[in-house]
């Protein structure tokens, strides 16, 4: 007795199906914990916020007046009677702080990370990296307070400027108001997030293949050309990741704007805080503003991911 070829094949395919099913099941089991985590802690809360944001003027303990876009319209629609340009102004200021902080961190962080990764004595490197991220171990409140004592009118910075003016005849540097200005916020935020930028850029630069830099020099590229045409493109993913992290976290920070920003430093994160914990307790508006922030950040991530991947897209 011999089995017919067809039945053999059938059995074979059945076996194959079973294996595929098993493989699928295996993959699902592997994916389940992160998937569940994502749904529980990311998707559901976001949907909840979205839901609340669609009820105009919702306050806790009230049922609200039904769904509508009132909260968003109040922020974005100039033809709405409830529209107040102050919200856009606040969003604009937050974007300004976040962008400024990101740029400052990048401009200051790159040389430091470059030095740490490529030039600092090898045996000191770990120590130096730790020393550089040491400020992260202190409370951000404490750091903000340290800046207050530096930036306040009778603080270290103005004392230093005064000393310079006294020490250099003919040079008259004006003592300035630093504390409670946008500059103070940018300084505080930059100081707060610079270590993150340095850390990420360092990780990226450390992986940089030195022979690529040598190859560039070998081919006649000046150090400047090598930097812009090899080092920067090679570390672009790190730069993007660093910028993203600093942008998002500085956008969400409200300790620094609150403590260093003074009387005109309302940011979107503080505004959201006020909507939830302030006197109006307008959860609807607060959620709408949160959604705006979530969307803005998501958009940034999407753009950077796309931009960062452009090379590989091009090659495909």
């Amino acid at each position: 007795m011999t089995a017919s070829p067809t039945s053999k094949r059938w059995r074979f395919s059945q076996l194959e199906l079973g294996q595929q099913f098993k493989r699928l099941l295996g993959a699902l089991t592997l994916l389940a914990p992160p998937g569940l985590w994502l749904i529980l802690f990311l998707v559901l809360p976001t949907l909840l916020i979205l839901d609340i944001s669609l009820v105009p003027g919702l306050r806790p303990g009230e049922s609200g007046d039904g769904y509508g876009l009132g909260n968003y319209s109040r922020v974005f629609n100039p033809f709405d009677a409830a529209f107040d340009s102050v919200y856009l102004q606040v969003i604009g200021r937050s974007l300004y702080y976040a962008t400024g902080t990101t740029l400052a961190c990048l401009l200051m962080g790159f040389p430091v990370a470059y030095w740490l990764a490529l030039m600092a004595p090898r045996r000191w490197r770990n120590f130096l990296v730790v020393a550089f991220i040491l400020p992260l171990w202190t409370s951000s409140l404490l750091r903000a307070y340290a800046w207050i004592s530096i930036l306040r009118p009778s603080g270290l910075l103005n004392s230093f400027i005064g000393w310079l003016s006294g020490g250099l005849p003919g040079v008259q540097l004006p003592e300035q108001a630093w504390l409670y200005t946008s500059a103070a916020v940018l300084i505080g935020l930059t100081y707060n997030f610079l270590p993150y930028m340095v850390l990420i850029l360092y990780a990226s630069l450390e992986k940089l293949d030195i022979s690529l830099l040598e190859a560039a020099a070998d081919l006649g590229a000046t150090p400047r050309q090598t930097f812009w045409q090899v080092t920067v493109p090679q570390t672009l993913p790190g730069i993007a990741a660093g910028c993203l992290l600093v942008f998002i976290t500085s956008m969400g920070d409200f300790v620094v704007p609150t403590l260093l920003g003074g009387a005109s430093s309302m940011t979107i994160s503080r505004l959201i805080y006020n909507q939830f914990l302030g006197i109006t307790r307008n959860w609807g508006l607060g959620s709408a503003l949160s959604m705006v922030m979530i969307l803005a950040v998501s958009l940034m991530i999407a753009l950077l991911l796309k931009y960062g991947d452009r090379d590989s897209v091009k090659e495909a």
Partner: peptide, 16 residues
């Protein structure tokens, strides 16, 4: 290196 009229083929190729 960038001002020498020599060029190198690297062991790891070092292609960009």
């Amino acid at each position: 290196a960038h001002r020498r009229s020599v060029n190198t083929v690297f062991q790891s190729y070092a292609l960009f």
